[in-house]
Write a protein that binds this DNA or RNA. Sequence first.
RNA 1: GGGGGUGUAGCUCAGUGGUAGAGCAUCUGCCUUUUAAGCAGGUGGUCGGUGGUUCGAUCCCACCCACCCUCACCA
Length: 487
Amino acid sequence: MEKLPDYLAHRREKLKKLKEKGINPYPYKFEKTHSSKEILESFEDLEKEKKVVKIAGRITSLRTHGKSIFFHIQDGYGKIQVYLKSDELGKEKFENFELFDIGDFIGVEGIVFVTKTGEKSIRASDFVMLSKSLRPLPEKWHGLQDKELRYRQRYLDLIVNPEVKKTFLTRTKIIQAMRKFLDDRGFIEVETPILQPIYGGASARPFKTHHNVLDRDLYLRIADELYLKRLLIGGFEKVYEVCKDFRNEGMDKNHNPEFSMLELYQAYADYNDIMKLEEELLKFVAEVILKKLIFVYQGDEINLDTEWKKIPLFESIKEYANVDLEKKDEEEIREVAKNLNLSVDEKTNKWKLVDTIFGNLVQPYLIQPTFITDYPIQMSPLAKRHRKKDHLTERFELFIGGLELGNAFSELNDPLDQKERFLQQMNLRDLGDEEAQVTDEDFLRALDYGMPPTGGLGIGIDRVVMLFTDSASIRDVIFFPQMRPEG
RNA sequence: GGGGGUGUAGCUCAGUGGUAGAGCAUCUGCCUUUUAAGCAGGUGGUCGGUGGUUCGAUCCCACCCACCCUCACCA
C-alpha cells in the first residue's frame, strides 16, 4: 500500500481512533436550532434567557490552551466562536476533541456569552463530530490565491475566500431580480430544447453530439431564439428563458464555452420598446443588488441614472475612429483596417472587417451605457430591415463598462425575407465562414404561418454579473469554468 | 495560434551552478477568555515534465504541460 504523506496519515489515524471509541465520524443528521447569523442577530435575548442553542458547521480556526479551547465554526451564513472548557465538559469528552481538526464539521450545543475581548461566542456543553475532514484547508491568512486551484477546486475557494461566496450569492440574486422584473410584467418563463437537430439563432460553431436510438446527430444549442419565436407563432405574447448556451469557440475573460443567457420576446413590440425594457431591467437589477445606480466597474465610475446613449453603428465608428465606413466598399474598408494596424487578411469579409474595427476602436470606450443601433443586414440575419434605411436592420447591442451586455432586434417575421437571409448565410458558409447560420426549414415553415411583429432580446447573464460584482473575468462568476485537463 | 509572465512543502511565498528555506498548517511538550494566541522542539520536498550543457542542474539551454496577462479568434 502506498504510504500517505504525514498530513494525510495523521487525519486517517484520528479517523481510526474515532471509530475505536465508537464515535461515528460520518453520522446521519444533526438538529440545529440556529445558524451563526441568527445567533449573532438575536444574541442579547439568547444571553438573557440562557437559552441552549445547537449549531453546526466547519471548524475554520483553532486555538488550544491546555484545558480550554477556542475555535470558529463557519456555516452557510457566517461564522461564530465556540469555547470549550475541560471543567464544564468533563475530562473524557474534552479529550475527545483531540481527534478534531480544522476542516471537520462539528455540531455544538451550549449557551451564548461574550468573551473578555468582547466576541460573541458559544460556551459548549456538548459537541459531536458531523464529518471528519481528511485533508487540510488552505492557509488561514492568505486564503487560496492560486487562480488555477481556485477554479479547479472551487469548493476550497468558497470555504476560505468569503468574497467569492458573496459574488456567487449576488449572481443568484441578479437572476432572481431578472425573473421578478419579467414575471411582474407578465412574461411567461418557458423551457426549450438544449439538444437541437439544427442549431440556430446566433453565429457560432456548435458542440455536436449523437443520439444512439435515433442514430442522429444533435447539437447543443448556441441560442434559444428560433424556438422561442416558434412559441410566439404558437400564440404566446411575452416569453423568456434563462438558459445555458454552448459555443464551441475560444475562451477568454469574456467567453466560456457554456454560458448563461436570458432571452425574451415580446409580441407587438419593436426594438425601441426593447431598448426601453432592457434599460428598465438593468436599472431594476442595479437597485435591487447595489441599491444605487452609480457604481465602479474595473476602475471606471458607471452611471446608469442617465438617459442611455443611442448611436447607430456607423455613426459610432465615425465618432470614435473618425472614419465613415457606411458608403465604403470591402477593399476600402480593408485598407482602413490595415492602416489601423488591425490584423485582417484578404479572407476577412466586409462585415467582419466592420466588426473588427468597431471592436477595437469603439467598444473599449463604451463605458457609460450605450446602445449601438442599426447594424447592416449582412451582420444580422434574423433582424428586420430598418423601416427607413434598407441596407440596415432594426438591431441594437448594449455596452456598459466595455462589456457587450445584450443583443436585440425588431424580429424578422417576413418568411420570404428570412429565407433570403438564410441563403445569404449559406453563401457565406460556402465561402468559408464557419460561423454563418444554417437554414432551418422547420423554422421557415413556422414563419409562413405568421409571427406577430415582435421585439426580442438576449442578455449575457454572466457579463451582467461581472458588471455588478466588479469582476474582471467571466471565470470569477461561473462556479466551475471550463479548464484544460490538469497538467 | 503569436507575445509576455508564473510553476519551489498541504497553503502563502523567499532563494541558490555544489540536490533548499520562512510563515501558516501538521506532529510532540507546556498553557482554563484566545482570536494571524504564545513558548520550546520536530516531521514534511522527484524545486511542473522530458531531454541537453556541465565533474555536478531546482537554477543555464531546448522542447512539452498547466495557469495568468495580452493580441488574434470569438458578437
